[in-house]
């Protein structure tokens, strides 16, 4: 677990650096979702740079595609592509655009328009059942994203087909662009909402590596129904002045903010 926590701390530094250099990115949601991605990519998921053609690999869909910087940083660290290539992120002519793109090794599905990922995940899970393969499908969504009606069509279908090979995450950071989710469009009682569609619901502190890992493990063992992990996270997690601030959804840090953020993350790393 300590390794994973260290990794999460390093990935956050990578994200901060990437966004500071490119002068663009969605940093708040990157920071809230980092621990989930680290547990999936460094422990729970069966995916590797060489194995992207393996029909038995686990499938991952970042439905909240704007958190692509966290995903890119992890994929680069895991060797899905040379780290240097990522320096072109968002620059003229780059293949690293501001949302996941399957021209890039490691990315299954193009996202960026919210509210698609879970439906795609349902399709992937159905294919797994049809082909009797035991891969698992992981989909990560935002809590603001839960306002899209299509999400609920997917939730209904997964419940109906009892797709126990899918684990969905809601990055419940309680913020979206215009403010808190409760101001913009209420998302409380996620637990009851999902449960009423036949899902196994696990509600956890979403930046707690042990809790994430235990919940994913439990989701793998749950038979007969799909599992959703309501990850109660902190948007901007890890950098004090970004935490719980709607404005940091896609603000770009100044040089001073960058230095301060790196300092805080390094201190956290050292304390682990």
């Amino acid at each position: 677990m300590r390794d994973l926590k260290l990794k999460a701390c390093q990935i956050r530094q990578g994200v901060l650096q990437l966004i500071h250099e490119a002068k663009t990115g969605h940093i708040g949601g990157d920071m809230s979702v980092t621990d989930i991605l680290v547990d999936l990519y460094y422990k729970q998921m069966n995916v590797s740079p060489e194995g992207m053609q393996d029909p038995d690999r686990d499938r991952f869909v970042l439905s909240k595609g704007h958190s692509v910087e966290a995903l890119y940083t992890i994929l680069a660290d895991k060797g899905f592509f040379p780290k240097d290539e990522l320096k072109t992120y968002s620059q003229y002519g780059s293949k690293f655009i501001g949302h996941p793109n399957n021209k890039i090794n490691g990315i299954e599905m193009n996202t960026g328009s919210l509210g698609h990922g879970l439906s795609v995940g349902v399709g992937m899970a159905m294919a797994g059942k049809m082909d009797k393969r035991d891969y698992r499908v992981y989909v990560v969504m935002g809590d603001g994203e839960m306002a899209e009606g299509s999400v609920w069509e997917a939730i209904m279908a997964a419940g109906h087909y009892k797709l126990d090979n899918i684990t969905a995450f809601v990055d419940r950071n309680r913020l979206q662009i215009s403010g808190t989710t409760e101001q913009v469009m209420s998302q409380d009682s996620q637990e009851q909402r999902w449960a009423s569609f036949g899902w196994n619901v696990l509600s956890i502190p979403g930046n707690d590596m042990e809790a994430i890992d235990a919940a994913v493990q439990l989701s793998k063992e749950t038979k007969g129904k799909p599992t959703v992990i309501i990850a109660n996270t902190t948007k901007g997690c890890g950098v004090s002045f970004m935490e719980n601030q709607a404005g940091w959804h896609h603000r770009v840090p100044t040089d001073e903010e960058f230095a301060q953020g790196m300092k805080e993350l390094k201190e956290k790393e050292a304390a682990l």
Binding site: G144, A147, E148, Q176, V184, M185
Partner: peptide, 27 residues
């Protein structure tokens, strides 16, 4: 607006005319 008031430059409208503004969330 659909969580789009900032990018729409409608924040001012939402502030000054709250009774004539509807937020629907990302939908």
């Amino acid at each position: 607006c659909s969580d789009s008031r900032g990018s729409a430059s409608m924040t001012e409208f939402a502030k000054q005319r709250p009774e004539q503004f509807v937020e629907v969330g990302i939908a």
